[in-house]
Amino acid sequence: MLCALAAIPILIAVAVRLSSAVPAGRGPAFLDRITQNGLFVGVTAMVVSVPLFLPLTVGVVAGDTIAGEAGQGTLRYLLVAPAGRIRLLLVKYAGAAVFVVVGPLVVALTGAGIGAALFRVGPVTLLSGDTIGTGEAMVRLLLIAAYLAVSLLGLSAIGLFISTLTDVPVGAMAATVVLSVVAQVLDALPQLEWLHPWLFSHYWLDFGDLLRQPVSWDSFAANVLLQGGYIAVFGALAYGRFITKDVLS
């Protein structure tokens, strides 16, 4: 799955390289900047993968956590070992969290790498108009990856909870991914504006603030708070469900 994630920036970079210049303002955000600065491959790839591709992989990993073990029958042996239900749940969530951190990082670093290989790399002009050096730009790129990681932690907590509900891993994966899509659709409906700040996907695309000088941390902080709330709620639900679950698979 990490390979699939890495393929996104590579695809973007190769496509842009082979095609003629992209007209400014068309295509995904930052796409037109790639030919001027290879580092933007990473940024563009993250923008492209946030709505579906990253949630998809996170849904697969988080949905598989408990349901995958149950479906395979190994859950009962882990529990008899005894792994301890709380401990197992924590370890499984930690595993999903590691993937959530590594996923965006892979996209960002592969993007920067392939961008550096195919295009020139130089000082980056930020959204606020300031220009920063390449080193500072790499730091910003990693910051965006960290922002996405935080953004997806809530979704992986939801996936963990759904995973404790079933013995069929594919069902848990699909449900998690569908939820992430539904949340984004709801987020796009202006009639539901009162709901928007509560949707776990609300801040997903707000990492543009990290491309300003000075960095605006408002959306980062709000995002951390929101995702923390999701982790607390769905972590508690997963705990409540799993601790009393009859393991019959």
């Binding site: 882990l78 070992a81 005894p82 792994a83 401990r87």
Partner: peptide
Amino acid sequence: GPAFYPFLSGAANLRRIDAADP
């Protein structure tokens, strides 16, 4: 019945389950 990870070797499977026991 037994249940194991098909993509791991027999010994690796046992080591993994054993590691689950604190």
